[in-house]
Design a protein around this nucleic acid. Structure first.
Lengths: 150, 150
DNA sequence: CCGGATCCGTTTCGATACTG
DNA sequence: CAGTATCGAAACGGATCCGG
């Protein structure tokens, strides 16, 4: 994206450069909200990302230092993708996207309780999300999901 | 973007649907941070958006209820684009993008003072940004800029 | 002049098929 | 299962033209 090679002093530009495409944030979403970790799991998302596009975006995100790829220790064929520190720092941004969507998407079916809790108590919830995701958990899915602890 | 026509219960999807392209958020950024208001001002951005692309995105954003177009009262030839309530509600999201970028973009030149103040005191700054933008001001530019009031 | 609309060459993107 | 190759579709950039 050479568009933003021009330097400008607006601080949001770097985020735009990283996420001004439809797919990159989708992968981060899958990790944070649904605990997905492997190529195959990302591929199974509802949005039907194409195989080459997924491979591209995973490589991009890794190159940008947002995710890291580690060999899976239980299954040698698989790779595990996890958020780096830089990726974990995106959680507040994802949360604001979620709150905005929950408020303005007319036919949202976001869990009301989650949205209300999040907007009321960010200081408490965001660190909880972060530690959960760090350990391989997710917001909505799994036995250690954030929503199950509310 | 039919990709997200599939309904899913993840609350960030709507924001992704609205802003998963390189240009839409750029226009909102120009309004919030630089106080731009007219077609010509948006066109003059560093990123050199093409005329047809800009016209498309302005129409899209208006259709989504994020901006509204009003005739300019001082110059009958021009139109003024302003954020709607829905658009103003994007300010927290933009702020998180800014904070993330300021932290992780290696060669950012974001105003350090602004970033620190924002991260320390969101509860105070975000409403200030909102009222400023509502009145036609901006974060960085103009006599009533937010940074001039810190 | 300002705000677009239209056309067109080029690039990028993405769906599918295929491979190690 | 994790990707690559191919190829058609879509988006983009740039120039130009037009109405007010």
């Amino acid at each position: 994206m050479k568009r933003l090679d021009v330097k400008s002093h607006c601080p949001i530009n770097y985020a735009l450069e990283c996420f001004g495409d439809p797919w990159s944030l989708l992968i981060v979403r899958d990790i944070v909200y649904f605990g997905k970790k492997t190529y195959g799991e990302f591929l199974a998302s509802e949005e039907r990302i194409a195989t080459n596009v997924l491979a591209n975006r995973l490589a991009d995100l890794e190159k940008k230092g947002i995710i890291k790829k580690c060999p899976c220790d239980t299954d040698k064929r698989k790779d595990i993708y996890m958020l780096t520190e830089r990726g974990l720092d995106l959680i507040p941004l994802l949360s604001e996207m979620a709150l905005w969507g929950a408020k303005h998407d007319v036919d949202t079916d976001a869990p009301k309780e989650w949205v209300e809790t999040l907007s009321r108590d960010k200081e408490h919830i965001l660190p909880l999300v972060r530690t959960t995701v760090e350990k391989g958990g997710a917001v909505f899915m799994g036995p250690n999901s954030v929503v199950s602890k509310l």
